[in-house]
Simulated assay, not measured.
Amino acid sequence: MMLPTHAVIGLAVATPLLVLSPDLAPAALTGVLAGSLVPDLDLYAGHRRTLHYPTIYTLLALPLALVAVIVPTTVSVGVASVVVGAAIHCHADRFGGGLELRPWEGTSERAVYDHVRGRWRRPKRWVRYDGAPEDLLVLVSLAVPLLVVLEGPFRAAVAVALAIGAVYVGLRRRLATLAPTVFGYVPKRLEGYVPDRYRT
């Protein structure tokens, strides 16, 4: 799934705290938003492996969430929310396509790396690829209610995610065609940071 969808899924998971614990909701929303974005910071350095830990994040999220329930402070809720957001992101990547430049071709069986099992988890392709029309459908179906419920910077984050997601979906296939050309001009000293899939 595309990054805007991950961000909005995270916000949707934390939004019930607006009713359940309004004082802690900002910490939860901020934490889960950050956690939903963090795994994709590995985009140019071992994507879906370097910062993607589906099992480890999940195993950490359970006790952290329990601590946040027992000792509900902005810190405990914020920390738990970061890890929960990262865990959800990693599991959501399995529902999309494989790790390849043109995932609609379905040639990769690598969705996300599981460090505990020491192997790649296979893509389920429920959302065929990041930026697919169904990816936009997930984004819109979650973003529209959030635009009504959330306020301030969180509403703005949803609006930005929606705008970026819509543009990305419109350009997704063209970007795959342009990538080898664009990344062909990268200076030699930076070539090590360009994933192999962008050069073929």
Rank of each mutant, 00 (worst) to 15 (best):
V169Y: 03
T181Q: 10
E151C: 02
P180W: 15
L3K: 09
T73P: 03
P187W: 11
T50H: 09
P4F: 09
R173C: 00
L64G: 07
L66H: 11
V167T: 14
L150R: 11
G85L: 07
T200A: 12
Y193Q: 11
V127E: 00
L3H: 09
D93L: 03
E100G: 00
S21R: 03
V19W: 02
A7W: 09
H52F: 08
A179L: 05
R117C: 00
L64K: 04
G192K: 15
T107H: 14
E100L: 13
V75M: 10
G165T: 09
A179T: 02
P26F: 10
A7D: 05
R197L: 14
E109A: 01
L60E: 00
G192W: 08
L66F: 13
L175D: 07
L20A: 06
R199L: 15
V84E: 00
A45E: 02
L137C: 12
G85W: 06
L175K: 08
A80R: 09
R155H: 04
V8R: 11
E151I: 07
L62G: 06
A28D: 14
P103N: 01
T73I: 08
P4T: 00
V13L: 05
R189I: 08
D196G: 05
P63Q: 12
L136K: 05
V186K: 08
A161M: 03
V167P: 08
Y44V: 04
A161L: 03
V194D: 05
L24M: 03
R48K: 11
P72G: 02
A111E: 00
Y53W: 14
S81V: 12
T15I: 00
S36N: 13
V13A: 12
V186M: 08
V194R: 08
A132Y: 00
D114M: 04
P145T: 11
L178G: 03
L147G: 13
R48D: 06
V77P: 10
T50K: 10
Y44C: 09
T107Q: 14
A7T: 07
D42A: 11
G184H: 09
M2R: 01
R199K: 14
V75I: 14
G184Y: 11
R174L: 01
L17G: 07
A156Q: 11
V182E: 00
D130R: 01
A68K: 05
A159D: 10
T177Q: 14
P145C: 02
D40M: 05
V140D: 00
E105S: 01
I88S: 12
P187F: 13
A166G: 13
Y57Q: 04
Y113S: 06
R48N: 04
V149F: 04
P153N: 07
V84K: 01
A34V: 15
L150H: 04
L43A: 09
L29M: 13
R102P: 02
S141W: 12
G152W: 07
G106P: 01
D130A: 10
G78Y: 13
R110Q: 15
P187R: 05
L17K: 09
R199G: 03
A12M: 02
V186R: 04
L101N: 09
L146E: 01
L18E: 05
A156K: 10
V169M: 11
L162K: 07
G46F: 05
Y53P: 06
L51D: 06
G10I: 06
T58N: 06
D196C: 05
G106H: 15
H52S: 01
I164W: 15
V149W: 08
G97C: 07
P22T: 04
V69I: 12
V169F: 06
V79N: 12
A86C: 05
Y53H: 13
L66V: 10
Y53K: 13
V158I: 14
